[in-house]
Amino acid sequence: MSSVSKSPWVIHYDGSSCNGCDIEVLAALTPLYDVERFGIINTGNPKHADIFLVTGSVNEQNISVIKEIYDQMVEPKVVVACGVCACSGGIFHDCYNVIGGVDKAIPVDVYAPGCAVRPEAIIDAVVQGIGILEEKSAALAAAKKKGA
């Protein structure tokens, strides 16, 4: 499964973020930070993606969207919470329409804090995510072998 960890594709969804983290996620893909040189490609299709980058907190209306995207992604998959709102709700934690961090909706593997999260932090989080992706795919392969 090394092909997955050598060229992981990411999908991005904006929960209820202020855009600050979203543009930093995009900035990480563009020439100055350029994660594409590592084979990381931003895709719009959940079924093509290995790493799910979520920005912003969870609310009543988007919780089902986040769960749906997560469910559509195929195993193994890793979720990275980008920015402090995605980690815990951040500055908006006590707004009436904010439930909390992304972990209220789906299991999160890597937390990347920051307001707005810096592209360096996103790259670091994705690299850590690749490690987890490798472990998960190894576990998946082992389970398959055991089953067979």
Partner: peptide, 24 residues
């Protein structure tokens, strides 16, 4: 999908604190 309700936060944050909410 992104409605947070931050206008309501003026009740919890004072005028100087709210500037940090406003820019977000």
């Amino acid at each position: 999908f992104i409605h947070r309700g931050l206008e309501k936060l003026v009740e919890k944050r004072d005028i100087h604190q709210f500037i940090y909410v406003a820019e977000r």
